[in-house]
Computed example of a mutant assay.
Amino acid sequence: MREIHPNVRTALGMARELRHRIADMRERADEIVARRPSPSGLVIPEVDAMGRLLGLYLAPGTCARLDNRELAADIMAAITESTEDARRQYDIAMNNTDNLPRPLAEVMRELRAGTEPDRQVPKFGKAEQ
Rank of each mutant, 00 (worst) to 15 (best):
D48Y: 12
E106W: 07
M50N: 05
E17I: 13
G125V: 02
R35W: 01
V43C: 11
E3F: 15
P45Y: 05
M1C: 07
E46G: 13
V47T: 08
L66V: 12
I22F: 07
Y90L: 14
A59R: 03
R65G: 00
C63W: 04
N68W: 00
A11V: 08
E31F: 03
L58I: 06
P117A: 14
E110M: 07
E46D: 13
D24M: 08
V33M: 08
T83H: 08
M108Y: 01
V8P: 06
A29D: 00
R21H: 07
A105W: 05
D91G: 00
F124H: 07
L56G: 01
A77K: 12
A105L: 10
D48L: 13
T115F: 02
L58H: 05
M76S: 10
Q120M: 09
P39K: 04
V121R: 08
T80A: 08
E116L: 14
T115G: 06
L42A: 12
N99D: 15
P117I: 06
D67L: 07
R19L: 09
G13M: 15
K123C: 00
A15M: 12
S82T: 15
N68M: 02
R21P: 04
D67K: 03
D30T: 06
I44T: 15
P6K: 12
Y90G: 01
M1I: 06
G13K: 15
G41N: 02
P6E: 11
T62N: 05
P39N: 04
R65V: 05
R69C: 00
R119D: 10
E27D: 09
Q89K: 12
P101L: 14
L42C: 01
D67A: 05
M14Q: 11
A34D: 03
Y90S: 03
P37M: 02
R102C: 01
L66M: 09
I22S: 10
A77C: 08
L71G: 00
S38M: 07
A86H: 11
P6M: 12
Q129C: 00
E3R: 12
A73V: 00
A49G: 02
I44S: 14
R19I: 03
R102K: 06
E81T: 11
N99Q: 06
D67E: 08
D48S: 04
T115L: 08
N95C: 07
R65F: 01
A29N: 00
P37L: 03
I75K: 14
E17F: 13
M76W: 05
E46T: 13
L12G: 10
S82D: 10
E84L: 10
A11H: 07
V33F: 03
I4P: 04
P45S: 13
L12E: 11
P60K: 04
E27N: 14
A73F: 01
A113C: 06
T10A: 15
R109T: 12
L100W: 13
G41H: 08
F124I: 06
N68L: 05
E3V: 10
T83V: 08
H20I: 13
M94V: 09
D48A: 04
M108N: 01
T62E: 06
A34P: 05
A72F: 04
E128A: 09
M50C: 04
M25R: 12
I75L: 13
M25D: 12
E27V: 09
E81I: 01
L56F: 10
G55K: 13
V8T: 14
I92F: 15
D91H: 11
A64F: 00
V47A: 09
D74A: 04
